[in-house]
Amino acid sequence: MENPISALKAYITRYISLRIQEVRLEALERVVNVMGYLVYASIAFVIVFAMFCFSALGLAEFLSALFDSKTAGYLSIAGLMLLFLCIMFFFKKNIMRFLAGKFIWLLTKPRDDDDDDAPVKSDA
């Protein structure tokens, strides 16, 4: 017959070990989720940037034909990009707050939120 104190000690030790392992796995899961999101966001950024560049070049060519001057077409697009940059500069704090909030949400969201894409069952 096994000593109840040593059995309880072994049970508690195993429980603590399993809890530590669970916390490690949860932390790893969050890091992997954040890394996946960052990779996805960087790929999306590259694609959107390429689309923006080609759209700007196409619009510059269109405006060049409209103004009958390549210089005027390309300078007008440069002016639009400068305007866009100024708007981004003025809203820098709001953009940074949004991105920081999104990052914090990714790190702190409950595990149940991972099933957002699952269909909702109706009670009917």
Results as ranks from 00 to 15, higher is better:
L57C: 06
G79F: 06
N33S: 13
F67V: 00
M35F: 10
S17C: 09
V34R: 07
R19A: 13
F54K: 08
S76G: 01
G79M: 08
G58S: 15
A56D: 06
E2I: 12
G79P: 00
I43L: 14
E2Y: 05
A41N: 10
L8C: 05
M81V: 06
G58L: 09
F52K: 10
R14P: 00
R24K: 14
L57A: 14
V23R: 09
L38M: 15
M51W: 02
E22H: 13
S76P: 01
V34K: 14
L75C: 03
L83F: 04
A41Q: 12
V31H: 09
I47L: 15
V39C: 10
Y74D: 04
Y15E: 05
Q21W: 12
L18K: 09
F49W: 11
S6K: 05
S17G: 15
G58Q: 12
F49V: 03
E22F: 07
L80D: 00
F45K: 03
S76W: 03
E2W: 04
K9E: 06
V34Q: 15
L63N: 01
A65S: 08
V32M: 10
Y15A: 12
I5Y: 10
P4T: 05
S55K: 03
F52H: 14
L18N: 13
E29T: 08
F45S: 11
P4Y: 04
G79R: 01
L63S: 03
V39R: 08
A78H: 02
V48G: 04
F62D: 02
L75S: 09
I16W: 05
E29W: 02
S17K: 15
C53I: 14
V48Q: 09
S55C: 08
R30E: 04
F52I: 00
M81R: 03
F67R: 03
V34H: 14
L63T: 02
A65I: 03
A72L: 11
S6D: 07
K9R: 11
F62W: 15
M81K: 07
L66A: 11
L75T: 11
R19I: 06
G36D: 07
S69C: 01
V39D: 05
L63E: 01
A44E: 05
F52E: 11
A72R: 06
M51S: 09
T71Q: 08
V34D: 08
L8T: 11
A41R: 11
I43R: 06
V39L: 15
A27V: 13
V46D: 05
A44F: 12
S64Q: 02
I20P: 00
E2T: 12
A7R: 09
A65R: 06
A56K: 01
L8S: 10
I77K: 00
I43H: 03
S6A: 10
N33W: 03
G36L: 02
V34M: 15
N3T: 11
L75V: 09
A41C: 07
L38V: 07
A50S: 10
P4Q: 04
I16Q: 10
G79V: 13
F54T: 06
A50P: 00
M51Q: 05
S42I: 10
N3S: 15
E26V: 14
V34S: 13
V39G: 06
F52P: 02
E22T: 14
A10W: 02
E22K: 13
E2D: 13
M81C: 11
F45D: 04
A56C: 15
Y40T: 12
F49R: 08
S42C: 08
F54I: 04
A7N: 04
L59G: 15
E29H: 03
L25A: 14
L8M: 07
